[in-house]
Design a protein around this nucleic acid. Structure first.
Lengths: 263, 263
DNA sequence: TTCGGCTGTGAAAATCCTGTGAACGCAGGG
DNA sequence: CCCTGCGTTCACAGGATTTTCACAGCCGAA
């Protein structure tokens, strides 16, 4: 298992001894790390594309709970680990309920801190794992992850980065309906604000570019009230090629045992 | 959609004091819990459909590491929390690297244990969002959660989102009579206004669409003065045939009242 | 059998959702 | 400094969906 993907960690702490020791180890392990001695706006955390955030709330003072809450809401995929000195059960429970993933007491061994950060980050990676495989072909479309671009024949679709990421996400989940919130969450990397229409706009741009290069195919289907589904279909008269019982060759066909142990 | 999904927990521990106190709290919180005082084969854990497993490795003796490893490998989506007495940093690190999600030291406050279990389940649920639930088959019907749609053969029923959610709710409670208030509460997410007929209207739409695609079956039954019950039956005189999904337990049809506590 | 309340039904009315074009702000390059 | 490409936001129009309503048919009890 590929548990050893690089971890991008930010540390908010001003306990220099602790941070120094920890940094030495994370560096050895090949993690990418950024140390901050005071809070930065959650919006800036977004741009850092982190896997995990380690922080000592004493740095933040009164704002700590508030800050934790905002960070956890804005970045539901971010692993948040609190590492601090004395704390009460009530504080730990409050933090954990608020969205913190783990709460460690200082003093603590840096190796354990790292193991806990890994444990928290572990889950996220499963989905991204298989995307390194060569060019993916769907319909007339060829998606090349290495070029951040998609082609029809040898003509590029001229996708921008966001457009490409959206297409890739949809294509990876071929046949599945993805809700807007889920799409936004995974492409933009943080929670979608209520009423945001960005996903719709990018879907339109994608459709335009797809239509332009591959007019006889339909790739993106709207599910009213739900979201979008990627499934290449020829629009023309030649036979429909998939009903819902679609071909199972997609690499993500997972068998689920229907053991109904009701209770 | 409810963020507070019920937690299904198994506890492997023979520290009766700890288990008793914890059980009392989890019960109050509406969790489903199973206490075991010794290890059971990982294969049996699968059938229990757990969210989380809490265990004290001292119960397992020498086999502990082995057991942990097998459980984590076999059930990658299960949240595993170790709660035990004295332990070394090395042991904790080993456990966490092996796949354990959290490691708590006894003695500990049950509230914190619960908060940590919740934190682990929360993360777990998020990472596998949407996938995983295989198609459910009832009668001629195939209900696909990943598509927000139901099919008969390869024909879609063209359900809208609400229709689908209603069908899914009914099918999940197959054989049970659901009161209107309970249905409304769960599908619409808030309390039904007195005199609201929405549920009836949607039942009709569902019946129409079911009838259209699967004319020889009856799925939704009315219980006068009470509510509705989902139970696929062939309308024709020929014998009962059962969907491949599961045995038909047409046993006692119990009314489910609108208490929405456990949810 | 009759009556009062419950449920089925069709359609109108109200609401919500999505597609779309365009304006806006921002950043990098010329 | 202006231009260009990109991402975001807004408002509006056309549909799809949901809610509401009135009425007819059905059920169970007296």
């Amino acid at each position: 298992m590929n548990t050893q993907q690089t971890i991008r960690l930010a540390v908010i702490d001003n306990d220099s001894g602790f941070v120094t020791v920890l940094s030495k180890r994370t560096e050895t392990a090949g993690w990418q790390q950024r140390v901050l001695s005071s809070a930065i706006p959650p919006e800036e955390l977004v741009a850092m594309k982190l896997n995990a955030l380690l922080l000592d709330p004493t740095v933040l003072g009164e704002e700590a709970w508030n800050y934790l809450e905002r960070v956890c809401a804005l970045l539901p995929d971010l692993g948040v680990i609190v590492c601090t000195g004395r704390s009460t059960v009530a504080q730990r429970v409050r933090g954990l309920r608020l969205g913190v993933d783990d709460w460690i007491a200082k003093p603590c061994h840096p190796e354990e801190v790292m193991a806990r950060i890994e444990a928290v980050s572990r889950r996220r990676r499963r989905s991204r794992a298989g995307t390194e495989t060569g060019p993916v072909v769907v319909g007339e479309l060829e998606i090349r992850a290495d070029q951040f671009q998609a082609f029809v024949g040898d003509g590029s679709l001229d996708l921008t980065r966001r457009e490409f990421e959206l297409l890739q996400l949809l294509a990876d989940a071929k046949g599945q309906v993805l809700e807007r919130e889920a799409i936004y969450q995974r492409v933009w990397g943080y929670a979608m604000a209520h009423g945001d229409r960005s996903v719709d706009v990018f879907i339109r741009k994608l459709r335009q570019k797809l239509e332009k290069r591959s007019p006889s195919w339909r790739y993106i289907h709207t599910h009213f009230g739900v979201g979008y589904r990627f499934d290449p279909e020829t629009g023309a008269g030649s036979g429909q090629q998939l009903g819902p019982g679609e071909p199972a060759e997609a690499e993500d066909s997972q068998v689920v045992h229907s053991s109904f142990t009701a209770g």
